[in-house]
C-alpha cells in the first residue's frame, strides 16, 4: 500500500511540475482561442466592468475576468500584457501614453464628496473642499457645521480616483492632511465615512447610497445631468486601455460596451453613458 502511495506521490509531484512548466504555452493558447478576456485596474471602473461582463457572458461564449487592483496597476498590466485590457479612472500619464496604448472612453463618472448622514453640511465650495483636504480647515463649524473635528478619508496614493480628484480640486498628493485616514477602495471609503460622523471622503457615483450623505459642490448637485451639462466639475472619464493586438474577443467586448445595450448597463450601474 505504501509502495502505491509512494508512486502516487511521485506521480503527482511530476505532474504538477509538468503542469507548472507547460503553463506559459497554455495561457497563450487560450488567448488566441479567444475564450478568455482578462481585465484589470481601477476599483471605480471595476463594478461597472463586472456588470458589463456578466451581461456579455450570458450572450456570448466568453469568460471575462475582472481584477480590481487600481488604475496604475491596471495600466501597467495592459502595457506588460499581463491583462488584455486595463481599466483606468484617470487620464494616462505621459510615460504611459508613450507605450502605444489605445484608449477607449467607455463612460463618464462623477466623483461625489460624501459625509455622514447626520452631518448638516450639504454644500461646499470647491475652495472649501481643498481647504479641508489640505488641512487648512479642520473643524466642521468653519464650513457651517457642528463644532467637531473633521476626519478626512482619502484614497491611497496611486489610485486613479485620488489622482482625478486632486487634479480637479487643485492640490498635490503631498499636501493631503497628514492624519487623513487612507482607505483602499471606493467601498472602503464609503464604509469608513458611514461609520464615522466626523468623516468626509470622496467616492465614485456608482457607489453612492443612503448610508452616506452627498455634498453639492458650489451649489451644483452631483447628478449625471449636471456632469453632462458641464456644471458639475468633479467628473472624469472611465477608460479601457489596451494594446492594438489584443484578441478579437476582447475587441468584441469593447464594441459591445459602446452599443446602446452596453450603454444602458452603464447607466443602470450609476455611471454616465456616452451617448446622451
Amino acid at each position: 500500500m505504501w509502495k502505491k502511495s509512494l508512486y502516487f506521490v511521485c506521480f503527482t509531484v511530476l505532474f504538477t511540475i509538468l503542469v507548472a512548466c507547460s503553463n506559459g504555452e497554455e495561457t497563450a493558447d487560450t488567448q488566441t482561442g479567444g475564450s478568455l478576456v482578462t481585465i484589470s485596474g481601477s476599483t471605480s471602473v471595476g463594478p461597472l466592468a463586472e456588470k458589463l461582463a456578466m451581461k456579455y457572458e450570458e450572450e456570448n461564449d466568453v469568460k471575462i475576468e475582472v481584477n480590481q487592483i487600481g488604475s496604475s496597476a491596471g495600466i501597467t498590466n495592459a502595457i506588460s500584457g499581463v491583462s488584455q485590457i486595463g481599466m483606468s479612472s484617470r487620464d494616462l500619464k505621459q510615460e504611459e501614453k508613450d507605450s502605444n496604448l489605445q484608449e477607449l472612453i467607455i463612460a463618464y463618472d462623477g466623483i461625489v464628496v460624501v459625509a455622514h448622514p447626520s452631518n448638516p453640511v450639504k454644500n461646499l465650495t470647491m475652495e472649501q473642499v481643498k481647504q479641508i483636504f489640505t488641512g487648512e480647515v479642520t473643524n466642521w463649524k468653519e464650513v457651517g457645521g457642528k463644532d467637531m473635528e473633521i476626519v478626512v478619508v482619502s484614497r491611497e496614493d496611486g489610485s486613479g480616483s485620488r489622482d482625478a480628484f486632486q487634479e480637479i480640486v487643485g492640490y498635490e498628493s503631498g499636501q493631503l492632511i497628514k492624519n487623513a485616514i487612507v482607505a483602499s477602495g471606493n467601498g472602503n471609503i464609503k464604509t469608513t465615512v458611514a461609520m464615522n460622523k466626523h468623516a468626509i471622503g470622496f467616492i465614485s457615483f456608482e457607489y453612492v447610497d443612503e448610508s452616506v450623505s452627498t455634498m453639492d459642490i458650489n451649489g451644483v448637485q452631483a447628478k449625471a445631468e449636471n456632469v453632462l451639462a458641464g456644471q458639475y466639475e468633479l467628473s472624469r472619464p472611465f477608460l479601457f486601455v489596451h494594446k492594438e493586438d489584443v484578441p478579437g474577443s476582447a475587441k468584441q467586448f469593447m464594441e459591445f460596451i459602446l452599443t446602446p445595450e452596453g450603454q444602458k448597463i452603464v447607466e443602470s450601474a450609476g455611471a454616465i453613458p456616452l451617448t446622451k
Binding site: N23, E26, K63, N67
Partner: peptide, 13 residues
C-alpha cells in the same frame, strides 16, 4: 487576486 467568480482552472485569478 480578487476575482469574485467561479475559477475556470487553476490558472484563473
Amino acid at each position: 487576486g480578487t476575482v469574485a467568480a467561479m475559477p475556470d482552472s487553476i490558472f484563473s485569478s
